[in-house]
Computed example of a mutant assay.
Amino acid sequence: MSEYISLRMKSYFEPSHEGNWIEHKAHIDYDLWFIQSGIVNITIDGVIHTANPGDVIFLYPGVPYRASTSDMGCRFIYIHFDFEIGKQQRILNDFPLSGVISKDMIQEEFIRLGNAFYQLKLLTSLPGNRLYLKSCLMAVIAKIIELYGQGQYIGQFLNEKKFRKPTTNLDVLKPVFNYINDNLQKSIKMNELAALVGISEKYFISYFKKALGITPGQYIYQIKMNRAREYLYSKKYTVQEISNLLGYPDPFTFSKAFKKYYNVPPSKFE
């Protein structure tokens, strides 16, 4: 699924607040706060949640909150971002992840992101620093999702009535993803994929598009092009061999599909 994840950092900063700081807000983006010092209290629906140094606060878009600090003040790194899979925007809203993630659960990712932030802050002119911060943010989000999937964490900010119920479940499509990855060398038919999850072909196509925002055919095409790129980078295969490995009838058809995707023919791809 990593090919279809889109992560856009909107802004990032490190504010420091005195002991009398109070903030009432509802953000339009996802918001992660990495508490560096002091104590931050987040009040949502009258319930107070406390975050200590090393903890991470995860706020969802459109959710009003009241933030305040202790007499000692506080300092934290925040990042506003958007996250989607395929064309499914705000897909994290399908899961109760919004809350305080304790430092013992996310310490490694917390430290890595903090280092990336300070490196970017000090050396903004160096290429790649913002990209590295973005990759560290992705690692934090992946860790939170992993913790939730393993039953080790569930967000405290939104109860079951508040977060959006998913209309589709990506877990249902896992056999399809695995089958496609293992059978790129052949022509994959929609009825074969539908049979893997025990639903009709028509409903399968609709379900797949609702889950990812693209059709199964578009997904297969993109997976093949990503695999083609890997084969070309390895410099172990000819265009003819790659064409066979990806189930194209001849090198011309493969080259045409490749050029449509990358805007250059495979012979000139670097």
Score class of each variant (00 low, 15 high):
residue 39 I to K: 08
residue 106 I to T: 08
residue 188 I to G: 04
residue 139 A to H: 03
residue 22 I to Q: 14
residue 178 N to A: 12
residue 224 K to N: 05
residue 181 N to D: 12
residue 190 M to A: 13
residue 28 I to G: 09
residue 69 T to H: 00
residue 55 D to I: 05
residue 123 L to P: 00
residue 81 F to S: 10
residue 2 S to L: 13
residue 267 S to E: 13
residue 165 K to C: 03
residue 150 Q to E: 11
residue 234 S to I: 04
residue 259 K to G: 11
residue 94 D to F: 02
residue 263 N to H: 06
residue 164 R to L: 11
residue 158 L to M: 08
residue 8 R to Q: 06
residue 270 E to Q: 06
residue 224 K to L: 11
residue 239 V to M: 03
residue 243 S to I: 15
residue 195 A to F: 10
residue 196 L to F: 09
residue 204 F to H: 05
residue 12 Y to I: 15
residue 49 H to R: 04
residue 48 I to P: 00
residue 86 G to N: 03
residue 260 K to D: 11
residue 10 K to Q: 14
residue 1 M to R: 10
residue 175 P to V: 00
residue 166 P to Y: 02
residue 213 G to L: 05
residue 103 K to L: 04
residue 196 L to N: 09
residue 32 L to M: 12
residue 224 K to H: 01
residue 46 G to F: 06
residue 109 E to R: 14
residue 2 S to F: 03
residue 74 C to D: 05
residue 191 N to H: 15
residue 60 Y to V: 04
residue 50 T to M: 05
residue 28 I to R: 10
residue 236 K to D: 02
residue 12 Y to K: 07
residue 182 D to L: 04
residue 143 K to E: 11
residue 210 K to Q: 12
residue 121 K to V: 10
residue 79 I to M: 02
residue 83 F to P: 00
residue 187 S to G: 11
residue 245 L to S: 06
residue 120 L to H: 12
residue 178 N to H: 01
residue 143 K to W: 07
residue 159 N to E: 02
residue 145 I to H: 01
residue 266 P to S: 03
residue 269 F to Y: 10
residue 72 M to H: 09
residue 79 I to H: 03
residue 253 T to N: 06
residue 5 I to V: 13
residue 27 H to C: 09
residue 24 H to G: 02
residue 16 S to R: 11
residue 246 L to Q: 04
residue 161 K to Q: 13
residue 112 R to N: 09
residue 144 I to S: 06
residue 156 Q to I: 04
residue 118 Y to I: 02
residue 244 N to G: 13
residue 22 I to M: 14
residue 118 Y to D: 11
residue 260 K to R: 14
residue 187 S to C: 10
residue 200 S to P: 00
residue 99 G to W: 05
residue 204 F to V: 09
residue 29 D to C: 08
residue 119 Q to L: 15
residue 81 F to E: 02
residue 177 F to S: 05
residue 19 G to Q: 02
residue 177 F to M: 01
residue 124 T to D: 08
residue 233 Y to S: 05
residue 17 H to T: 13
residue 175 P to I: 01
residue 170 L to T: 06
residue 36 Q to V: 15
residue 47 V to A: 04
residue 29 D to V: 15
residue 228 A to V: 02
residue 240 Q to S: 14
residue 263 N to K: 12
residue 192 E to W: 01
residue 139 A to R: 10
residue 78 Y to N: 08
